[in-house]
Design a binder for these strands. Sequence first.
DNA 1: CAAGTTTAGACAAACGTTTGTCCATTGTCC
DNA 2: GGACAATGGACAAACGTTTGTCTAAACTTG
Lengths: 355, 355
Amino acid sequence: MPKQPTSSPRTTRPASLKMLAEHLGLSPSTISFVLNDAPGRSIPESTRQRVKAAAAKFNYQPSMIARTLQGKRMQTIGVLLPELGEGYHSQVLSGVGDLLMREGFFYFTVHHRHKKELVSAYPELLRSRGVDGILAIDTHLPEDALLPLPTVLVAGHTELSGVTNVILNHEKAAELALRHLHQLGHRKIAFMQGQPFSSDSDTRWAATLHVARELGLTVSDQLTIHLEKDSHSPEISYPGIRHLIQSRQHFTAVLCFNDVSAMGTIRALHEAGLRVPTDVSVLGFDDIQSSQYQVPSLTTIRQPLQKMGSTAAQMLLKKLADEETPELIRVDPELIVRESTARASKPPKKISAAR
Amino acid sequence: MPKQPTSSPRTTRPASLKMLAEHLGLSPSTISFVLNDAPGRSIPESTRQRVKAAAAKFNYQPSMIARTLQGKRMQTIGVLLPELGEGYHSQVLSGVGDLLMREGFFYFTVHHRHKKELVSAYPELLRSRGVDGILAIDTHLPEDALLPLPTVLVAGHTELSGVTNVILNHEKAAELALRHLHQLGHRKIAFMQGQPFSSDSDTRWAATLHVARELGLTVSDQLTIHLEKDSHSPEISYPGIRHLIQSRQHFTAVLCFNDVSAMGTIRALHEAGLRVPTDVSVLGFDDIQSSQYQVPSLTTIRQPLQKMGSTAAQMLLKKLADEETPELIRVDPELIVRESTARASKPPKKISAAR
DNA sequence: CAAGTTTAGACAAACGTTTGTCCATTGTCC
DNA sequence: GGACAATGGACAAACGTTTGTCTAAACTTG
């Protein structure tokens, strides 16, 4: 076969119904009926074949644009999320994207860094681009948001009527985490409170306090680290832990806000000469991919992030198909025990005699 | 103010030019001229104000769909990449997305898992959705690809005329890596060859062989690990390294294909009782976010992934503006020295006496 | 004040579809 | 062989824009 001379972008217009019609001596409407297998029209098999052959020959792709203008669906979703890059959002997005593509949907990814103006402006902008529905991950939509389209939330902050929200069962997560540490004999536990803009922070903190009370564990202010930085790198927890160590507070375990902050925690402990888990146990949250390959590997509360993403996407597609969807879907976490937690060291204050 | 009763998706149609026109007693074209500040039409300030006020009042958003059909640009890019989730692609995507959104562009993310049919089908599908240009990350486009739109590649495999390719200077990367290990006295180095479908694998391997020869280092088959699994978790390198250890081959350093595989490597060494870097040095590649928080933190060759992404996006926007763009942009790597590499242990074979 | 010019805007075509309505031709039935 | 139905397909409107052409009124100028 002859070699393509070049691959520069094509200059000729792509095939349209009208072109095919002209070429075949038919009308555009007939072509449309054949290609869409529209019911209620009688078209002989011979013509159908001719049309299909021509469509294939000219590599015809119907313009979704024109089709959408006509009132049809674009088969496209807009995904709102705070940030690109690694971590929580990427995992959820990955579940969303997998499902959507599998179902023949395309999607826009739109990040807003928690900026209010952007969060409220994007839904309309997406609609103007023909999006059929909106899926928002960890995004703070205002209570009175007037959403232009069917919407589903993952870890949504607010309850909006008619909007499905997929969230983790935080109560159970807190219970798994604290019961594990409690059973290992930990009583002096350092806690970490998520950033205020992160949707899970409040619910999780409330659940933690609740479960701690039930188990008779004290949550002391001195042992609580407040994450603030809007970052997805382990550096978010690093300064907090360093500060804690320098303040000479005694603790035998750290309950981290997520796996990434657990890495920063382990790093900070390591640099201070404290060993994990011998001296201090560290419990992560999320179970991101690299957790099991850390040294020590991370004990963590697994949050089925991809699953949450794909569930949310499924719900959105259901909504588009006008099927009934629940307003709340709660998914269960799971305790994954690895190396970073161990029995609390018996003597409260002996550290550097082990070697 | 009265509370919004509900936030269920709206049922009324969004405002259109025609609606505004009717409301104001003007024609749609006049509204269009005012809103687009089209030159060459005389429209009195009073009318302009009326129109703008009405547009604001009805929260008018022009339909990109209709506009695109008319022949205008959609301000939308299609991004092709092998996989969602963490790692290389996410980092590049993050750079791409940041720049595009900043410039007022939206983008589709489309993943293909290196499947040929998908790679060749997606460009047309994206075009049919009104995309203005295509940005492909680590994607194997066939040499004779007939691209429907302006295209830019990051780590593209093939040279396509008229297509800009943003790639790492692999020669320099190999030199930084091997010279570092060589200077630390390493002579028995284990190598890792990337998966065949990964675009960087071949070029990097060639560069590695070349530089190794220049430095007088031998690249032995027995000490070469071939990555195969299509995964972005540290598990890709884990079995290879285990196998290497079991084979009792002697080596003092491992040059990993990326940071993720370096984590798997360290984990495997750790489980075999080998200490990093005391017994074996490990060198990563990429410098992903978590590298500096590993224990030990990773010495690595930094690849400016986000920058590569944003550069590629910039080039694509230039192409869309009909500006001149180079066919090749080479970006320089950087050696980041941390804890995972150290001077080669002098005695070739003494390991377990340290404790 | 007639002729010409500017102003303010309407009108219509086009983009590529979908879909409701309509019209020939052919075939069927009594 | 005439009435009627089925077949095969054309025609046109509509979706929401943009943009080239046209026109009525108002203003200028000599």
